[in-house]
Computed example of a mutant assay.
Amino acid sequence: MLEIAPDRDVQTVITTFEVTPGTCDDLLDELREAVANHIRHQRGFVAAALHVNDARTRVANYSQWRTREDFMAMLRGPDMRARHRRLHDLCRGFEPVMYEIADTFSK
């Protein structure tokens, strides 16, 4: 379950993709397929969420992993290396960045 809280023992990865409105849906389809059929089955995967801005020029993938090593092992696997080549064809670039949750706020 995706839960954002500083006391959770997870690593957070936010990956942003620069796209055009014409390639946004194609990228989302590729990401949905990757998460549903491969990424969510990898060791250490906790949860993921896809976000798209209203101009359809940016897509963000928020994911949580048990450890940094689990995330890096998924990225380095042969399946993901092939998927990264397809993702590069659909966007101007993307960058996964690992974060620690510093704090949360709610109403």
Rank of each mutant, 00 (worst) to 15 (best):
R66M: 07
L27G: 00
F94Y: 09
A73M: 09
H38I: 05
D29T: 12
D103F: 05
A36V: 11
V52Q: 04
E95L: 13
L31Y: 06
E100N: 07
A55K: 14
V46P: 04
K107W: 05
L75R: 12
V52Y: 04
V10F: 14
A60G: 03
A5H: 11
H41V: 01
C24M: 08
F71Q: 04
E3M: 14
E33V: 05
D25C: 02
E69F: 10
R86A: 14
D25I: 01
D7R: 01
N37G: 14
G77I: 07
E3F: 13
Q11E: 12
F94L: 08
V59R: 01
S106G: 14
D26W: 01
M1A: 13
H41F: 15
R76W: 06
T23N: 10
L87K: 07
T57D: 07
G44M: 02
T104P: 00
T15Q: 06
Q64P: 02
Y62V: 12
V97Y: 00
M74T: 05
N53H: 08
L27D: 06
P78V: 09
H41W: 12
A102E: 09
D89H: 05
M1C: 09
M74L: 07
F105G: 02
R85A: 14
M74V: 05
V52I: 08
F45A: 11
Y99V: 01
T57H: 02
R32Q: 10
A49I: 08
P96S: 08
D89I: 01
V52R: 07
R56N: 06
V10S: 12
Q11S: 12
A48K: 07
L31I: 13
I39V: 15
E18H: 11
H84I: 11
V19E: 00
A73W: 02
M72P: 05
S106L: 10
R58Y: 09
P96I: 07
R58W: 08
T16M: 09
D25S: 08
F17R: 03
P6M: 01
P78W: 10
V59K: 03
I39E: 03
G22A: 15
T104Q: 03
V97N: 06
A60L: 13
Q42R: 15
H38V: 11
M80C: 12
E100R: 09
T12Y: 10
V97A: 10
E3G: 10
W65I: 06
A102L: 11
I4D: 01
G77D: 12
T23R: 12
F17H: 01
R85E: 15
R76Q: 15
Q42S: 15
C91I: 00
P78N: 04
V13M: 11
F45M: 12
K107H: 06
